[in-house]
Design a protein around this nucleic acid. Structure first.
Lengths: 300, 300
DNA sequence: ATCAACTTATGCTTTTTAGGCATAAATAGA
DNA sequence: TCTATTTATGCCTAAAAAGCATAAGTTGAT
């Protein structure tokens, strides 16, 4: 049973006339007759009752024509969707990201993606930098945002966003936007930071700044999650330094004071498998290229 | 896109290895490679990523393999059911019948049909003899039970059941099983019968009997429907003569007295289109042939 | 009754497609 | 570097499909 035969069968079934059907399908009538005969022979089923004058469907033919109709249109549909997927216009992309990215690049990126590729689904997983590499290699995600880059043979990455740090203070803290001048002013405060091993960027950059200011921060609490750190600050357990995009996290009773007049910035990079040929990824990268994540642009 | 190609594609998709797949499907590996290439070319879609060492599905190939799987098994199913229908083991038969047949041949016939052909559906339409011929010719029904035969070029019929008449009396009537001897005893009663034009059998047979007994029945009500006649008798509006199988209609307050000692009988025939090739009909006729509807057998 | 018109089936030939074999090309691993 | 492995390509053969001519059967008109 061949799709060609099935198509021919549908032609005859709708015309109930071999000659007319053969014209419509641009083949000679004997060829058509024989294809139908073959189909009937293969099935062991008479599909048409024909005398020399009239052609009509048998009950089995009736049934087959209904079902074949469905199958053929399903097939068209599948063909079409396969092509969409090939072109990357349909599909899913699984994105790993640090919590902070939710406050910066992710919203405009998803909007743009939806706009240009309405049939691409996204699947977001918040994860720590330390899990991202493994998740990519295990094919658990297709692309990720990451703050800290480790060169890797199988991965490619690109910086997409660069932002200053902010000093995070409890509402009641004496320092504010107006009287803040440098980190030296909090040299005696307790600090809450991510653990050194899971995220060396903050540490190293912060240490560099502090070093210039002539002190070492006294870390009394550690947490991997930005939201947790914010809560601890809110409860007066210390101060912190975080990417300024956390300002948009609607954290309450906490002050964000941009640390200006220092060169240090934190990067957000996008990272993916070098050999990933999924066309959806290409579109994702294209869309993220097209957006302007330049410093501050998204932080208004 | 060809059914064969899809099957080959599924073979490679499940093995992810052209050579192994080709062995499993008993064709040479180059032939298989080429068929996949053709499919890819036709779709304009890369289905496998192959380097010289590994073969894996692209996202589009992944999608297609899921869908093709479904399509192929659907197709198997359809093939099978088409064959069942061809063999008459599946399908529907639409049966026209007079109300009375519900009390005689229909129950055992449907049971037997269900037993031997569990996938044949039946569709019963109660109709008057006068509608049956037209309904058959319009293909509204496939077969019918009928009391009165009119020879017809396009129809074939066969008597399947023969039964005596019964005298139908209201419960209060003086005559009963014991004192009944002949119809002459009700010669002065009012009669309720079907109209002469719609069903001449009762009339003609009844008139023949009455004639022998030396009277003419006085018809005061007419109805086409047995159930109606029984109701009228129940309400003391007259007496009637009907096929004895109405005894099983659970009519209440009505007496059925078999008219013995007369040769007249009413036939129930089965009738169908001579040229009907529907295999379900063949089975239906075979089953009805196999049942013993001999006089009285079903009337215990 | 015969003939013309029409419709599907069959015989034969050509064209197209599929499949096989040998082998190239490429790559991983010893 | 060599071997084993695996997919792709060239070329030929075999099978299948399609075309053309025409047979065979049926209907309806003259």
């Amino acid at each position: 049973m061949d799709f060609r035969q099935l198509t021919y069968f549908m032609g005859v079934a709708s015309e109930l006339h071999f000659s007319k059907a053969s014209e419509k399908m641009f083949i000679a009538q004997p060829a058509l007759s024989r294809q139908i005969q073959q189909l009937e022979k293969e099935l062991g089923v008479l599909l048409f009752e024909r005398d020399k004058r009239n052609v009509k469907l048998t009950p089995a033919g009736e049934y087959l024509s209904n079902e074949a109709q469905k199958i053929l249109s399903q097939l068209d549909h599948i063909k079409h969707r396969t092509q969409l997927i090939h072109n990357g216009e349909e599909g899913e992309i699984r994105i790993g990201h640090p919590g902070s990215a939710i406050y910066s690049v992710i919203p405009p990126l998803l909007s743009a993606l939806k706009l240009f590729f309405p049939n691409i689904k996204t699947n977001l997983s918040e994860m720590l930098d330390s899990s991202v590499i493994e998740a990519l290699k295990k094919h658990e995600i297709d692309v990720a945002f990451i703050r800290e880059l480790h060169p890797d043979k199988y991965l490619t990455s690109k910086v997409v966003f660069r932002e200053p740090f902010a000093l995070i203070l409890p509402e009641s803290h004496a320092i504010n936007e107006n009287n803040f001048e440098s980190l030296a002013q909090v040299k005696n405060d307790n600090f809450i930071l991510p653990p050194r091993n899971s995220s060396s960027v903050y540490h190293d950059l912060l240490l560099r700044i502090c070093e210039r200011e002539g002190f070492l921060p006294n870390v009394v609490h550690e947490s991997n999650y930005g939201a947790t750190i914010l809560k601890l600050v809110e409860h007066n357990l210390g101060v912190s330094v975080m990417p300024i995009s956390y300002k948009f996290s609607s954290a309450i009773k906490v002050k964000f004071i941009e640390i200006k007049n220092v060169p240090e910035r934190t990067n957000l990079s996008i990272i993916w498998r070098k050999d990933d040929t999924n066309p959806v990824l290409k579109h994702f990268l294209k869309v993220s290229d097209s957006l302007d994540f330049s410093d501050g642009h998204l932080l208004k």
